[in-house]
């Protein structure tokens, strides 16, 4: 880890009319660090994630990202072209519902290859070889490369979505409930895979989840949100083992014990 943050967020707020989406969120994210944002539904996690990934413009506040050339650039002052370019090269976005992040009517190989083609790769053989490599890394059989994601199970779709996002070697990945809607054994394998990839590639990630187990497994640091505000933040182990805010205590004690 370097001593310069990758993403610097300061006093970020998003209002929907008079309703609060998220309010006054400030944090830094360092390269290679995984930050979990937890909270119940409606607490503003997804709004925050959409603002951070510049899919949504905040009402106030700033977020700056350190580009590959080392310069810190303010996200909301970039042109849309630059933001979209960032989104398909240096960033990834893993949606909760894979259908939102995949092209369901083109083959798995093309889904993985799209980003490569978008940045100018024009060699079919190389694109395909990279797609094969990435499919194997996310444990999808090579002979499924020409199948459409429609023919895939939920877990496979999610892994395909991850491959599609990571193929350009991004430095920052946003994940919105990456294990939502999957059964527990599939969840466990996906988490294992994600943890491996994040460590191997040195990815920084912002993971939104309501599942504290996901946060514990994946993240080094977490933020707890309630009603659009951050009520507690700190090292994941510390927050989960010694929650300070009453809401966090409630959240931690609500985990079902099997």
């Amino acid at each position: 880890m370097t001593d310069e943050p990758l993403l610097r967020v300061s006093a970020l707020s998003k209002f929907y009319g008079s309703r609060v989406g998220c309010e006054n969120v400030t944090f830094d994210l360092w390269p290679g660090e995984v930050l979990a944002v937890v909270g119940e539904s409606g607490s503003g996690k997804t709004t925050l994630l959409n603002c951070l990934s510049a899919r949504l413009l905040p009402s106030s506040g700033t977020a700056s990202y350190r580009m590959r050339d080392g310069q810190l650039r303010e996200l909301y002052r970039m042109s849309e072209a630059e933001r979209r370019f960032l989104m398909r090269t240096d960033w990834g976005f893993v949606h909760q519902n894979p259908a939102d992040g995949l092209r369901m009517t083109v083959s798995a190989g093309a889904n993985v290859g799209e980003r490569l083609m978008a940045v100018g790769d024009r060699h079919y053989g190389k694109i395909r070889a990279t797609a094969v490599d990435w499919l194997s890394r996310v444990e999808i059989d090579e002979d499924r490369i020409d199948d459409e994601p429609r023919a895939f199970s939920g877990g496979m779709r999610q892994r395909l979505q991850i491959a599609r996002n990571l193929v350009t070697g991004p430095r920052l990945v946003f994940m919105d409930e990456p294990t939502g809607g999957l059964d527990v054994s599939v969840q466990a394998r996906l988490l294992d895979l994600l943890r491996g990839l994040v460590t191997d590639l040195g990815l920084a990630a912002v993971v939104v989840t309501h599942d504290l187990a996901v946060a514990r497994l994946l993240s080094q640091r977490m933020m707890v949100m309630k009603d659009g505000r951050v009520v507690e933040s700190g090292l994941t182990d510390r927050v989960l083992d010694d929650p300070r805010a009453p809401y966090t205590q409630l959240l931690v004690s609500s985990i079902l014990q099997v």
């Binding site: 979209r84 092209r103 083959s107 093309a110 799209e114 980003r115 490569l116 083609m117 978008a118």
Partner: peptide, 22 residues
């Protein structure tokens, strides 16, 4: 329209990729 404006034409090659794959 946005894709034309920003010259984002990777998708066009996705179609050609699909042709070759199939």
């Amino acid at each position: 329209r946005k894709m034309h404006a920003l010259e984002e034409y990777g998708l066009m090659h996705v179609k050609l990729y699909e042709d070759i794959a199939r």
